[in-house]
Simulated scan of single mutants.
Amino acid sequence: MAKVAIVTGGGQGIGEGIVRQLAQDGFTVAVADLNEENAQKVATDIGNNSKGYFVDVADKQSVFDLVKHVVSDLGELNVMVNNAGIAKIGQITETSEDDLSKILDVNIKGAFYGIQAAADQMKKQGKGGKIISASSIAGHEGFELLGAYSATKFAVRGLTQVAAKELAKDKITVNAYCPGIVLTPMWDQIDKEMAKIYNVPIGQSLQKNIESIALGRGEEPADVANLVSFLADSKSDYITGQSIIVDGGINFA
């Protein structure tokens, strides 16, 4: 029987890239997204008995219900990818309470609840498992105009380290991936907001960031998915508590 992976935020962007790679690796994938229609379309496209599900990662009950439904439908849970996330652009001094609350709810609570729900199920199964969450290069070094986002991604690194220590006895590894400048709609939106703030043409901020990449190109979702593929595989069994940068050469920490 194929192993089962859940990918939150799997209906588009980096999440969809991860979903497609895991399906190629032989996983049956539970594609979970706030947009259930997108999730179902991707699941149908990749096959492998994969299914689409609704999830609101900011809602603890929704995340726990997701795991419950996936196990009921697909048999077990072997890999949990806490990928869902949002970005808010702006100076710290101008960030609203509502915007701050929303990004904390999705990026931190979403990862926290995903770790909780996956660990609970994996412990019941007694066979270990892998929990993999989305951090960022902005979780290694704060990015200007991404103060709240950077804070959440630093938090994911901390959660990853603590969960790895607490769950090691259960043979559950916990790691994170830290993408750089990924060419997805999220970065298109970041670029538009930066254009307004810096009063520059749309595309200029994105191009400036791409020029800072040692390998000379923007990142594709597949570049991130290749790392997640490794972290989901038995080849990474001796790696836990790590937040691994995959950015083409921007941050050399």
Results as ranks from 00 to 15, higher is better:
K3D: 04
I239Q: 03
S234Y: 01
Q21M: 13
M122Y: 14
K165W: 04
S135D: 04
A134L: 14
L206Y: 07
I244E: 06
G47K: 06
E144I: 12
V7Q: 08
I131Q: 07
I197W: 04
L74F: 10
R20V: 11
V42D: 02
E97A: 14
D105L: 09
D59R: 02
L34A: 10
Q204N: 05
M80L: 10
E37D: 13
A43F: 04
G126F: 12
D99G: 06
G128H: 09
L159W: 11
G15F: 04
G249D: 03
I132K: 13
G17Q: 06
Y149D: 10
I92H: 05
A164E: 11
I197T: 13
A225V: 11
V4K: 06
L100H: 10
Q125M: 14
G75T: 05
F54Q: 02
A5E: 06
Y113T: 05
S205C: 05
K169Q: 13
A87T: 14
G11V: 03
F143E: 02
L167T: 05
V156I: 15
N175L: 09
I250Y: 01
E166V: 05
D33A: 02
R157W: 07
L66R: 02
K88S: 08
Q207G: 05
A119M: 13
N175P: 12
K169H: 13
Q207I: 03
S50M: 09
S133P: 08
S234G: 00
A176F: 08
V106S: 09
V70L: 10
M80H: 07
Q116C: 09
G128T: 09
D33Q: 00
Q204C: 00
K68E: 15
A214P: 03
F252C: 01
S96Q: 09
D247S: 01
S133K: 08
T160C: 08
E36D: 02
N35H: 01
I92L: 14
G203L: 12
E97H: 13
K235F: 03
Q24I: 00
Q204S: 14
A148T: 14
K124G: 09
K196A: 12
Y198L: 15
L66Q: 01
V228H: 11
I181R: 03
Q121L: 12
K208H: 07
V182N: 01
K102C: 03
G114D: 10
Q189P: 00
K169N: 12
V19M: 08
F230V: 06
V246C: 07
L77R: 10
F27M: 07
R217Q: 12
D237P: 00
T160P: 04
D120Y: 14
A117Y: 07
T240A: 09
D73V: 06
D223E: 09
G17M: 08
D188V: 14
S243A: 15
A163W: 11
G248I: 04
G85A: 13
A176W: 06
